[in-house]
Write a protein that binds this DNA or RNA. Structure first.
Lengths: 152, 152
DNA sequence: AGTTGTTTTTGAAATCATTACAAAATTACA
DNA sequence: TGTAATTTTGTAATGATTTCAAAAACAACT
């Protein structure tokens, strides 16, 4: 019970800290992103939240994520060219995406903190480092069964 | 004349080197990507090539780019979450994308060559480093006119 | 050249993610 | 309360991509 309440409060505070009014829907989505470190898509969030919020609209999920991203409360990942994934984590880190099952895994950046390039041509606001390849599970399953979409 | 022929030959050789049969369409698209370092989308390639190849189909551009990417003859960039961009350049480099006009600029990686992470969880095949922000032109135009889509 | 089998291209239709929009619901606050 | 501003909702429109089957191009062989 404590942890549940704590997450709600954390999420609420996080929204306020980023200048976002904590509506019921925004809170639910922010809380979802803080609890699930799976880098979900709009549809994943929408489908997972709907059982407990039957009136939730897909458009609201789109709208809310747009607001969260604009206010830097959440990160939009472009690692998957088919659809956007969202990340509630704040500390800088990279991502690995399995080209077979689509799973996205956090990659610690440790000390390879990669200097932001200096240029007269542009001003950098965000950095995204993406690795692609096969995850351990998909390497193993390769010969054997078809195990797609297990980890999305 | 020499340079034109040279690009055709380079493109042809590039396809063959990557185990791709050089059909007329594949050659035209590969040549286009070697000559235009603008990281074009499917539609940009399709529209630019059509005047000289009126029978070209958009589906063919999709099919061809899929083949080129599968054979590592071309890089698919996920830097833009709305649509895929393609890069005919071979040497490793990063990209900057202007969030206002959408232009994509090559970023030299120099010696900050960023070690590929070692992990038992996955095997890395590709790395993509993407910067986002405002390009010099859009910073200047900010107060003034609307100059969107100039550099796509 | 002519035949046959394989690969590639083509265009139309289908799908999927996202955006636009206007009405309804909720909230802020005078 | 009442009124204005914000947020949510559902539907319809858009845009990118995929599917698919037929047509065209190509390769190998006679």
């Amino acid at each position: 019970m404590i942890s549940k309440t704590t997450t709600v409060n954390d999420a609420k505070q996080h929204l306020i800290d980023h200048g976002i009014r904590p509506s019921v829907q925004r809170l639910a989505i922010m809380k979802y992103l803080m609890e699930h470190r799976t880098h979900p898509t709009v549809d994943k969030i929408y489908n997972d939240l709907r059982p407990s919020m039957p009136t939730l609209s897909r458009t609201t999920v789109y709208n809310t994520l747009e607001v969260l991203v604009e206010h830097d409360a959440v990160l939009e990942l472009s690692i998957d060219s088919h659809t956007s994934h969202y990340d509630g984590a704040t500390a800088p880190h990279a991502h690995f995406r399995c080209r077979r099952c689509g799973a996205i895994i956090d990659v610690d950046m440790k000390d390879l903190a990669l200097a932001t390039p200096e240029s007269s041509e542009f001003t950098v606001e965000h950095v995204e480092i993406s690795y692609t390849g096969l995850c351990a599970r998909c390497i193993n399953d390769n010969n054997q069964d078809n195990n797609q979409d297990n980890n999305l």
